[in-house]
Nucleic acid binder design. Structure first.
Lengths: 290, 290
DNA sequence: AACTTTAGCAGTACACTGTACGACGTGGCA
DNA sequence: TGCCACGTCGTACAGTGTACTGCTAAAGTT
């Protein structure tokens, strides 16, 4: 699944965790003093600080050497992915995941603080599928390279469309990092300021996610063309749709509808528009050199 | 909220509904015969057909004139939006919405078949905020016009970020239609095939949604820069991040981190990258004329 | 080899969700 | 005036995330 998540050496993890813990503790003490002096309102700030610890703790938590755990966090993420793929995202409940692993429900909570944290792990595992494996080499040409990554992202999202339901993932996991790193690598052959490269990387990622979101929502069920045509006619009869009404008067509803239908489902759209986006960047960057 | 939703004349609605119902019924009868002859498996197909009726029924359902309902579907959508804005999307439960309207929970189910249908209404109401009001005129220049619409979409998504949690909206509501119509209007001054205009419209929409999704996720909480820097250092120490490691060796972690940080939060990014996308289209369309 | 400790595991319970079912009462038409 | 359809809503049920609380078995200590 995620190539190196568990390979992160425990020593480094522990070091990091200790360091962070110490730092947070210091701040907590500071805050605690103020709170003792002043009062209630600061409690929230204290919580926020604690949350910061959680953020890094999600990735840095170390398996204190003792009784051997039955599972790894990756196992759990993998189980969740398996369930989501085969039974839909709604089926991913703590109970269901636990059952998949032949464990008690509450056992999961020894590996994961909340369901959200589990989903964060799932998201990083997902990004593990996006990352170009080390057996494959990134193309030299930046357009080819970034297109390859974009296509991999799209394909992974098509395999696991429910990923788009995990909306909250501000966490930077190891695979997110690796993905970002590969994007930067991709642009090695592009002469541009780092700022502009960031623009490019983020715009491409955003386009891909938007595309897949749209695709997922519109390919859901094959709505019957007849009903739809009738329905749209009815809507248009209300007036107030000048452009579409004009167009239908011109080419006819059927033709227009089938054009749109074919277009949404067409296969070339992704690459075509991605190429246009990249061309736009190229032109813009040529105009403002390094 | 949605400028014309409720203005749709009941007569037309009823007509449409009757027509569709008759058509579906005919098909249902056909299917029923086959099922009588053959057997079970077709039941699913029957259900699917029934669903098609639901799809258009969501918008076409007519208020059979009788006792006056206390609410309109728009009222309910508005209540849901109010709650989501002030208490977060998770707070939008049927019970909470009903309470907001001083009604019993189950009362809602006389206006709406399921919670999903309610969310479909909410989404269309949202699109009502995106639609350019008739008091405002669309710019003549297609780039200005489509940019205006894109910016309105982004602003609406910033006002209601939780909209991105409503992932399933294959339904074409009145305001979705109006939005699409305005997009087509926007491109009046662009000489291109309809196919290409569709490419442009969809790509822009997808970019905007991707942008807002990304923005929402990354602006969530102000992660403490110190911890983050430490954490990233730890990750990078694991090796395997060639591009980033090299960059840090070059400019230093702090500098890089602050660049990225500033960049993600920078205000110009949206317009800058949108302009690049549009430029890419313009160049591509100039090359392949009408 | 016996003992202590404690981390991994899990059962129960609680507050919450969406919604199926059925009862109630009232407004509008005959 | 009577009727009854339709808007309203209370109850109930299966499901959710997770806090709390024990139990068990394995690792470490003597």
């Amino acid at each position: 699944m995620s190539p190196k998540t568990s390979a992160t050496s425990d020593a480094v993890k522990q070091l990091m965790l200790d360091k962070a813990t110490a730092k947070i503790n210091a701040k907590l003490d500071q805050q605690a003093q103020k709170i003792a002096a002043k009062s209630v309102k600061h409690a929230e700030a204290l919580d926020r600080l604690a949350e910061h610890l959680e953020t890094i703790d999600t990735w840095m938590r170390v398996d204190r050497a003792s009784r051997k755990p039955r599972f790894s966090r990756d196992d759990i993420a993998a189980a969740a992915i398996r369930i989501a793929d085969s039974e839909g995202f709604a089926a991913v409940s703590m109970r269901r995941v636990a059952a998949e692993l032949d464990a008690g429900t509450m056992t999961l909570y020894h590996y994961v603080r909340t369901k959200d944290e589990l989903l964060t792990l799932v998201f990083d595992a997902f990004l593990g599928e996006v990352v170009v494996p080390s057996t494959e080499r990134l193309p030299r040409d930046w357009r080819a390279a970034i297109s390859l990554i974009a296509r991999r992202t799209r394909d992974a999202l098509r395999r696991h469309p429910w990923i788009l339901d995990i909306a909250d993932d501000p966490n930077i996991g190891p695979n997110a990092m690796r993905h970002f790193d590969q994007c930067v690598q991709s642009l090695a052959s592009l002469e541009a300021r780092f700022d502009d490269k960031l623009d490019l990387i983020m715009a491409v990622d955003e386009y891909v996610f938007g595309f897949c979101l749209h695709e997922r929502n519109n390919l859901k069920d094959e709505v019957d063309t007849d009903e739809m045509a009738d329905y749209i006619t009815a809507l248009l009869d209300e007036g107030d749709y000048p452009a579409l009404s004009a167009m239908i008067a011109d080419v006819g509803l059927e033709k227009m509808w089938s054009m749109i239908h074919a277009h949404v489902r067409g296969t070339g759209r992704f690459d075509r528009n991605l190429a246009r986006l990249l061309a736009g960047f190229e032109a813009s960057l040529r105009r403002s050199p390094v």
